[in-house]
Write a protein that binds this DNA or RNA. Structure first.
Length: 424
RNA sequence: GGAGAGAUGGCAGAGUGGUCGAAUGCGGCGGUCUUGAAAACCGUUGUACCGCGAGGUACCGGGGGUUCGAAUCCCUCUCUCUCCGCCA
């Protein structure tokens, strides 16, 4: 969420920048400014009343100790009125604070200057396209048919065990999954990321910390008995490592990578692009997360993009990088690059990674700060994350693009991990 | 699942109604001493909000209550630990 002080000091800037998202913030910002003034006035009054009260209480204590009980009791009678007004101030203050907060969380992050305005995905900028799109045989099979033909993934069995969107990987299909996970983790480690194995369920505080709550409540699986949420991405537990902490500036950036299964209810998304591995309730992903100094975060974003690009290249998949437009960028992001690989048999681009700089938007909610040498006041850090990479669509593209009459070829870089170079 | 104990500053740990934002120790930072370091000694060391500032307010797991006054008393919730049971 945006910092209140910042909104207060830069109302026009906030409104102007959010226009790129087709988000009209004028009403909300105006209300926030009004409430903020009220809040401060109220706090002034309340603090004054409390100061008065504290002073009297202290005096009463001294009087009692000196044995002047009469004077002490006389002083007591003066307090009841102040006490009442304090009570009322506190009630009003809490109410206004809640109103401000409710408005504050409605404002999305300010897009970076490089983000172009736009309505939706059609307006995204294609930064670059790498690799050549393979010419496929007319009878090339989509991955769900290949998965069945070579007995790699059993979607039907998943339905039996759990439900749609929970596929069962088996044999070389399962081994391919494991190989990809190891490969991605090793690559991240070599790039200096510390590997984390996080819990797959988180508590409410963590779900709030990264903004899954309150807005996206319906997108997470929730265990009501213990009030825990299945993570939709490793970003949630990993980023929450840094909730409520003050870091040393000289230790920045913090770099973490984590493999996890991800669980998403995907409520309301049935019917389109859900075939095979295209959209699942449970899938695997290796995530990279960085906590950065504000001055460094965009340099770091570029490095993260380069890291992801290099992964896709090593897998020999044709891909393109998009810079998301204002209308398509996520609520919490200031700048996002999406990676899409070309899936040859489906003949379409599939999103396999999303790399974002959240600037201070997420850190502000997390209370993730750092302290600069010699500066007393802690500052809000920047957070970034990206998928590196999400497995299912990578697998879909690998199967489809690498199919040959002899079988499915495994990219060279993966062979040491799979232990086989062809699926036949 | 049963029984018990506990939650205080970066950590450890005192504090059971007022002078407590909080002893003491460790750690951190600065300094003295030293060729340098260690040791010793001295000083310093929480966060947020409001205020131009002086300063004020809040925070001792969360919420509520008693009281002129709560870290301290009461209620409630959450979490952690120990023992027993079960168990990968």
């Amino acid at each position: 969420m945006l910092n209140l002080r910042f909104i207060q000091d830069n109302p026009e800037l906030v409104i102007e920048k959010l226009k790129k998202r087709n988000f009209d913030a004028s009403e909300i910002v105006k209300n926030i400014l009004d409430l903020y003034k009220q809040k401060n006035r109220l706090q002034g009054q309340a603090d004054q009343a409390k100061a008065e009260m504290n002073k009297i209480s202290k005096e009463i204590g001294i009087l009692f100790r000196e044995g002047k009980a009469d004077e002490a009791n006389a002083a007591k009678t003066r307090t009841s009125e102040i006490k009442e007004s304090i009570k009322q101030f506190d009630i009003d203050f809490a109410e206004i604070e809640k109103k401000v907060f409710d408005l504050q969380v409605q404002l999305p992050n300010l897009p970076h200057d490089s983000v172009v305005p736009g309505k939706g995905e059609d307006d995204n900028e294609i930064v670059k396209i790498v690799g050549t799109i393979p010419e496929m045989d007319a009878n090339a099979l989509p991955h769900w048919e290949l998965a069945q033909k070579y007995n790699l993934i059993d979607f039907e069995l998943g339905v039996k065990l759990t439900g749609a969107g929970f596929p069962v990987y088996r044999g070389k299909g399962a081994r391919l999954q494991r190989a990809l996970i190891s490969f991605f983790l090793d690559q991240a480690r070599e790039a200096g990321y510390e590997e984390i194995q996080p819990p797959l369920m988180v508590n409410e505080a963590s779900a709030y910390g990264t903004g899954q709550l309150p807005d996206k409540e319906g997108q997470m699986y929730h265990d009501a008995t213990d009030n825990l949420y299945m993570i939709p991405t490793a970003e949630v537990p990993v980023t929450n490592i840094y909730r409520d902490v003050i870091l040393d500036a000289k230790d920045l950036p913090f770099k973490n990578t984590a493999y996890s299964s991800c669980f998403r209810r995907e409520a309301g998304s049935y019917g389109k692009d859900v075939r095979g591995l295209n959209r699942l309730h449970q899938f695997d992903k290796v995530e990279i997360v960085q906590v950065a100094h504000p001055d460094e975060s965009y340099k770091i974003l570029d490095k993260m993009v380069a890291h992801v690009a290099q992964l896709v290249e090593k897998l020999e998949l044709p891909y393109r990088i998009l810079r998301l437009c204002g209308g398509d960028i996520g609520f919490t992001s200031a700048l996002t690059y999406d990676f899409e690989v070309f899936s040859a048999a489906q003949e379409k681009w599939l999103e396999v990674s999303s790399v974002s700089n959240f600037e201070s938007f997420q850190a502000n909610r997390l209370k993730l700060r750092f302290r600069e040498e010699g500066v007393k006041k802690p500052q809000i850090a920047h957070t970034l994350n990206g998928s590196a990479l999400a497995l299912p669509r990578i697998v879909a593209a690998l199967l489809e693009n690498n199919q040959t009459p002899e079988g499915i070829k495994i990219p060279k870089v993966l062979v040491p991990y799979t232990g086989f170079d062809i699926i036949d």
